Computed example of a mutant assay.
Amino acid sequence: MAVAMSAWSIGLPSVEKPTCIVPIFNATSGFGATKPLFIFRKGRLSSSGTTIIPQAAPVANVEDGNQAETDTIPTPIVIIDQDSDPEATLVEITFGDRLGALLDTMNALKNLGLNVVKANVYLDASGKHNRFCITKADTGRKVEDPELLEAIRLTIINNLIQYHPESSAQLAMGAAFGLMAPQEQIDLDIATHITISDDGPDRSLLYVETADRPGLLVDLVKIITDINISVESGEFDTEGLLAKAKFHVNYKGSAIIKPLQQVLVNSLRYFLRRPSTEESSF
């Protein structure tokens, strides 16, 4: 049960368990925001291979987690949501009922120059959900840089693997820095789905679903901005081996016309080099 308290900065001294939880704002997974929440500008991006991920110290036990080995390992889910709050970046982590307090994760985010200003933990039928409301420590504003957003994602996944080594077999990142690489051939077995639809006269909604890998968020944004399409805001979900991206995009302040939509789809498919289908699973 959540108990109200003042804004929680990850600069607080480490303790074994947080003594109380801050109720986070009501958030939805939709795209109802009318104000652009972050703008990716062409020329800002460098190679995604240079991202440095702060490491958390491995831990032997997970606080408040289920340590028993079971036949079914839950699918790890990490959601980075730029739409639900105009002032902060919302991050949600789910891994069945096995997640603990994740104080090491919060300290690792601090090393990226970030503050966790609100936090909430709740349990439902799908598992235990940890939600963090994140801002940049130097400005107090939400994260806008796609490279920093990708660093946040990889930091969280890396720390998830440190807490739960069994999760690395469920994550594409397990092949990069996990203890157990995924058994599936993710480059071959996961198809890519891309759809573009109008989202009013001023922008379009782009869906991309593909096999996950380090640096994917930065690479997707670079491809989009390289053909002079602006990314206003969106959501990036990591669901096990699968990555799902939802971007509000526009071309010179207008929705993307059909010929340019095809150029964008072709560019993304060429880069992703995955089996393609016409239907999306969104």
Score class of each variant (00 low, 15 high):
residue 278 E to C: 05
residue 82 Q to D: 10
residue 148 L to W: 02
residue 45 L to W: 02
residue 39 I to S: 08
residue 42 K to D: 10
residue 69 E to V: 13
residue 184 E to T: 06
residue 78 V to H: 05
residue 71 D to W: 08
residue 265 V to A: 06
residue 211 A to Q: 04
residue 51 T to L: 15
residue 88 A to T: 02
residue 76 P to W: 02
residue 63 E to Y: 06
residue 152 I to P: 03
residue 135 T to H: 01
residue 47 S to F: 04
residue 228 N to W: 02
residue 16 E to Y: 07
residue 215 G to Q: 00
residue 220 L to T: 05
residue 140 G to F: 08
residue 39 I to R: 10
residue 170 Q to A: 11
residue 105 T to P: 04
residue 30 G to R: 05
residue 10 I to P: 13
residue 162 Q to K: 14
residue 7 A to D: 11
residue 86 P to N: 08
residue 155 T to D: 00
residue 46 S to I: 09
residue 253 G to C: 03
residue 231 V to F: 03
residue 107 N to S: 12
residue 168 S to I: 05
residue 91 V to T: 07
residue 73 I to R: 02
residue 192 T to I: 09
residue 192 T to S: 13
residue 195 T to M: 07
residue 165 P to Q: 00
residue 122 Y to N: 14
residue 225 T to V: 15
residue 181 A to E: 07
residue 163 Y to H: 14
residue 241 L to H: 12
residue 43 G to M: 06
residue 255 A to N: 08
residue 53 I to M: 01
residue 17 K to D: 04
residue 40 F to E: 05
residue 67 Q to T: 07
residue 65 G to C: 02
residue 212 D to W: 02
residue 161 I to G: 03
residue 113 G to M: 04
residue 119 A to T: 05
residue 226 D to Q: 08
residue 125 A to I: 11
residue 282 F to M: 09
residue 241 L to S: 01
residue 56 A to C: 13
residue 140 G to C: 08
residue 234 G to T: 04
residue 3 V to G: 04
residue 104 D to V: 02
residue 67 Q to V: 06
residue 190 I to T: 01
residue 251 Y to R: 10
residue 224 I to P: 00
residue 12 L to G: 02
residue 18 P to I: 12
residue 142 K to N: 05
residue 129 H to V: 15
